[in-house]
């Protein structure tokens, strides 16, 4: 089944052209010209990916991302007409996963989409109890406990399911696989976002911040996902 892509863009020309080229890329495209229609479409068709233009009439892209995030963990790529840093950081903080700046190459956009659609590193091997437990990483014994269950593809605190977006989950898996070791921003950008040398390292920083609000007991003074100054980030399970 082809992946469903929600396209929210108010410019008719761009929307139509993107629809055509994304369909060529093999996506099933659901498009919307305004945020309200798009919200309804998210409820209805549960897209696997979203492409969101930031500058919209009426409800803007930022608000759309904020209202869609509680219910959808699907990766969101923002289409920004400005390489303006404020807009991009604001969109990432609202919950976007990545961005492209107009005018972009369709090739670039599909590369971004492909990177975000990659499966999380799910545990392989027979689904025995032993294998099951071995792919559970206890992150925090005291509060919860907080468990990264790679077999089930989710994070639990006690019995409760901690809601992470797909990208946040993949970021946590990368950090978990190297737990106790420092991962540089560049390495994370490469493994999670598939971005090369010129990738924007702020993407990693904003995602780490977002992840901390969900897994740290005090996000202001992180003890689990720590910053190693000048080097990168490290996950310190307790």
């Amino acid at each position: 089944m082809s992946p469903r892509l929600l396209l929210l863009e108010d410019d008719d020309g761009i929307r139509t052209a993107l629809r055509l080229s994304m369909e060529d890329e093999g996506y099933e495209v659901v498009d919307a010209a305004d945020a309200e229609t798009a919200l309804a479409a998210v409820q209805e068709s549960a897209p696997d990916l979203m492409l969101v233009d930031l500058m919209l009439g009426g409800m803007d892209g930022f608000s759309f991302i904020r209202s869609v995030r509680p219910t959808s963990s699907a990766p969101i790529i923002v289409l920004s007409a400005r390489s303006d840093t404020h807009d991009i950081v604001a969109a990432l903080e609202a919950g976007a996963d990545d961005y492209v700046t107009k005018p972009f190459e369709v090739k670039e956009l599909s590369a971004r989409l492909r990177a975000l659609r990659r499966r999380p590193p799910v545990a392989v091997g027979p689904d025995t109890d032993a294998a099951h437990t071995s792919h559970q990483l206890v992150l925090d014994r005291e509060n919860g406990p907080l468990v990264l269950d790679e077999a089930a593809g989710l994070v639990r605190r006690g019995d409760r399911h901690v809601h992470l977006t797909v990208t946040e989950y993949r970021l946590l898996c990368e950090l978990g696989a190297a737990s106790g070791r420092v991962l540089s921003r560049r390495a994370l950008l490469e493994s999670v976002w598939d971005r090369g040398y010129f990738g924007d390292e702020r993407i990693v920083d904003v995602h780490v911040r977002r992840l901390r609000t969900k897994i740290e007991s005090d996000p202001g003074t992180p003890t689990l996902l720590v910053t190693v100054r000048g080097l990168g980030y490290r996950l310190d399970p307790r």
């Binding site: 540089s184 010129f198 924007d200 911040r209 190693v228 000048g230």
Partner: peptide, 25 residues
């Protein structure tokens, strides 16, 4: 574990702050 050259002690901003980088890939 790749160190980022030069992004070190004397110029270190809190790494949690927005990192300067480029928007073009």
């Amino acid at each position: 574990a790749q160190a980022r050259p030069g992004d070190g002690v004397s110029h270190g901003h809190p790494s949690d702050a927005v990192q300067p980088a480029t928007g073009r890939s």
